[in-house]
Write a protein that binds this DNA or RNA. Sequence first.
DNA 1: CTGAAAGCGCTTACAG
DNA 2: CTGAAAGCGCTTACAG
Lengths: 347, 347
Amino acid sequence: LTLTGPKRARRVTQSDVAAMAGVSTAVVSAVISPKPGKTIRVGEEAEKRVRAAMEALGYAPDVVAQSLAGGRRNIIGVFTYEAVFPADRKNFFYPFLLGIERGAMRSGQDLLLFTSSTLEKGRRSIFPKGTNRMGIADGAILLGAAQDKDDLKRLCDIGFPFVTIGRREVEGGHVSWVAPDYRSAVGDVVTRCRAMGHRALMLIGEREVREQNEDRERGFLENGHDDLTLSVERIAPEEIIPAWIDELLKSGITVVLAETFAHAVALERQLAARGLKIPDNISVVALAAPLFDEAEGERWTRISIPREEMGERAVETLIAKIREPGKVPENIMQPLGYVPGETLKAI
Amino acid sequence: LTLTGPKRARRVTQSDVAAMAGVSTAVVSAVISPKPGKTIRVGEEAEKRVRAAMEALGYAPDVVAQSLAGGRRNIIGVFTYEAVFPADRKNFFYPFLLGIERGAMRSGQDLLLFTSSTLEKGRRSIFPKGTNRMGIADGAILLGAAQDKDDLKRLCDIGFPFVTIGRREVEGGHVSWVAPDYRSAVGDVVTRCRAMGHRALMLIGEREVREQNEDRERGFLENGHDDLTLSVERIAPEEIIPAWIDELLKSGITVVLAETFAHAVALERQLAARGLKIPDNISVVALAAPLFDEAEGERWTRISIPREEMGERAVETLIAKIREPGKVPENIMQPLGYVPGETLKAI
DNA sequence: CTGAAAGCGCTTACAG
DNA sequence: CTGAAAGCGCTTACAG
């Protein structure tokens, strides 16, 4: 299909308008996209004629051409390693998208979802077959748990504006992000536990230590008091076996902070297997939101993440970045909430 | 922001590759987008050199430039009068989007959501401020209950390929659609009612008669037998008042086919007000899916719509249309399902 | 089988 | 305040 195919009427172009208004195309351009430091200024009379001509001709600027010539597209790319429209509606990532849509609406941006890139090796990649589909957008928001440091680095290198949801650090590049402030939130949890009489706390979490895990761990450790015993154990949920529970019970630990719901749930199951209950025998706080089923989280004492709000702020941050490319990367630490739940008990 | 801004590294371009491979840009172009009836053919050797150069330089075609020059963008626009990411997850339109995403993935298309156009007068328009944002996509899928015949006509006129979900007819233009086959489905309902002993049936529905209402009415009326009394009443749900119920009860009608859930629910409420129950006193069949809450529909005898599948087929149809613009518009009548429920009783 | 050139519809220095 | 011209990175007839 070509734009100039047989069925396609020739589109009304800038020069048609210019001709009708008796000005040059540069003037029309100036009228449709007025900019502050514009080199070209248009007289009132001329502008009026141009607007009349546009109206009469039904002129609509060609976004593609504007793009190529270096104009703004007003398109924000959304790249996600997750399904954009998750079939299970309780998906963890969905609220971010909701916020992104709202942010886009507010700021008059269209959203380009990179749905095409799934084909390659069953996993989404930003540079499928070496092509960078992102180029068509002014910038992009990256979403999802996957870490593709190489892709991020490459995006940094070509100077493409992007914002990740969740903290991401790339060697030799600055990336902007809007991230849950796990550090403060976990620190807050430690303080609360202490206030409730707990003195021996343990953080359990994934073996792979990414930025978010670092943040939690940091918030955990830096809030140690003299009277507190803090320990960290990196362990997969499947590794929470009876022998491990034995150790835990012997250790005198009274509250476990679980980095993921999978850990919390595994722990609960193993405790139940020997007739122990949360929080009667041991307290548990979840340091995350459930990945798939919101309802699953209900009864747990936990940290909550304002995901919609974060989506919106990601859009705002990205737009700021697009407008002023030279600026220092804006990083936003999103304050989190604390939900009391029923799994943390004073002792 | 300009593509050539200070922070932005100059992008690797087709002529860089061409220079390195010792060929012209036309050859590179032919290599990256091979087409059947291509005027230009490339030798094996040359192709090898080109590919090597692309690899070495990290070349990625600029989609925007390809676009302008008349190439394919592989971007499908999605225009919806509804929220793209509905906050209430049980939204009627959501499953269509799910299907569209899947279709896009399967066929390697990106999805452009026209989220920007909401700003104008609080309602989305395809041509906000006269601008046609759609131009950046190869074609578009239109979704949502709103009828903007002017917009549709205009899209037809400029020869922009699009497919609507739901039948839409435009005077002086052909539009492609993927639509629920209400006609057959309602005919089927009539047959079932008759088989269950009903002889006097009434269709109630919205006052505004759109394509979908026509389809239902047609399916209803054309399935009349000699022994059947069929009547149609166009009435707003709020107009279902006690006096109307009186008439209904006197009429001898034993089953009501409701075009919308709002009608079915209003009817039920008014019947309940005088101690009557569905289906004990009168049977009701819903000829639609609930708009907001899937669960609400559960107990009703009703028609079901395979929405995900329709979304996927809309993508396929659109792609076919983009590939062969000259072809007759493809219209797909989607077969619907029948859900027995509890509100239709044999007599 | 391949190259030189025009053109897609804009924007933006550069001159008046 | 405005015009003429170059250029964005491609694709596609048109010539060899």
